[in-house]
């Protein structure tokens, strides 16, 4: 790429001016847009439908989407490096099946959870190794992961397996009372904790900054001596871990394990990340944006359920339109940059 002005004079002044007037907003602009969209949707909902402005609606948004939030966090890591992970929906399903199967066999829930997490990480590790060391494209490697995990599900259980374990279902049904008569669940707390940890890792650690560096320019990152190999494999492990955790949260939500759970959920996760302002080419985006993206998706559904007259397919169409809008806007933003 030829740059516009390699010999631009007056470095100091212009750099300062550009920084002052331009840089910070441009980095945060997509996230701010998503947030504004969310607020706008809530505003519109509150005006149109009675009861929409109830804070519990917001809390329910988190309760109903806790697993998707966790999934989107993992996906953000992968997409920031310029990769993609199609396997997450299948890994969620596999996690519910493994959890249900092992608890049915009388395993203590904690041990089940550890096993689920181990499986998720292992699958992620294998995909990451294939992608980094054998140059298999992320799309294809994780497509294999998608088929593999879904196949394992059917191998373990062809029918829905209800989870009867007392302590597990007790934990699922326990609600946390908040002042003002509102409540939330432990799943939400766990999801938000994961978001916080992810944000810390991405922004405050070398591993996190390397994630961004790989998305910016992988060769440069390598020549700068950053731990590229470890991190590139690592993001798929993180995504596998998040899928497993999301699977556990989904088990809490559904109280069952089923091989047809979470079909197509990888698309929701990708859509949430994109709507949250993360560039699919990598290097730009925030975990918080992805959370907002999930909430936008959830709000669309809330809208439709409040309305009652809108048919369910409008959800899909609305998500498609939003995706389009964000992608086109991002494209224009990227084009303007040097």
């Amino acid at each position: 790429m030829t740059t516009a002005d390699p010999l631009a004079p007056a470095v100091a002044g212009s750099a300062w001016d550009r920084l002052r007037g331009f840089a910070p907003p441009s980095r945060f602009l997509p996230v701010i847009t998503t947030f504004a969209l969310l607020v706008g949707m809530f505003g519109a909902g509150a005006v149109r439908y009675p009861g929409f402005s109830d804070p519990q609606v917001v809390l329910n948004l988190f309760i109903d989407n806790s697993f998707l939030i966790v999934l989107a966090v993992g996906m953000t890591f992968v997409i920031l490096t310029g990769g993609i992970d199609l396997s997450v929906g299948s890994v969620v399903a596999l996690s519910t099946v493994v959890a249900a199967r092992t608890m049915e066999a009388g395993w203590p829930p904690l041990v089940s959870c550890v096993l689920v997490i181990l499986i998720g990480c292992t699958l992620g590790l294998l995909m990451g190794l294939a992608i980094h060391y054998f140059d298999v494209q992320p799309f294809i490697a994780t497509l294999a992961g998608l088929f593999f995990a879904r196949g394992l599900c059917f191998l373990l259980a062809g029918r829905p397996l209800p989870i009867h374990n007392k302590s597990f279902s007790g934990f699922a049904e326990a609600s946390i009372s908040l002042p003002g008569g509102y409540y939330t669940t432990w799943a939400v707390v766990i999801a938000l904790l994961i978001v916080a940890v992810a944000a810390f890792v991405l922004h405050r650690t070398l591993v996190g900054r390397t994630v961004y560096a790989i998305g910016g320019n992988e060769t440069s990152a390598l020549l700068m001596g950053l731990p590229v190999a470890r991190v590139k494999v690592g993001v798929y492990v993180v995504s596998g871990l998040c899928s497993a955790l999301a699977g556990l949260l989904f088990s809490l939500y559904m109280l069952s394990g089923y091989s047809l759970h979470a079909v197509g959920m990888e698309l929701d996760a990708i859509a949430a990340v994109v709507i949250g302002g993360t560039l699919l080419t990598g290097g730009r985006g925030f975990v918080v944006g992805s959370v907002l993206g999930v909430l936008v998706l959830g709000t669309i559904q809330t809208f439709i359920s409040f309305d009652g007259t809108l048919s369910s397919w409008w959800t899909k169409i609305a998500i498609g339109v939003l995706l389009l809008a964000f992608v086109v806007v991002q494209r224009l933003v990227v084009r303007r940059q040097p």
Partner: peptide
Amino acid sequence: SVDPASELGSHPI
């Protein structure tokens, strides 16, 4: 003279 906190890509080559 460059602000160390600014994004590298926003500067000329």
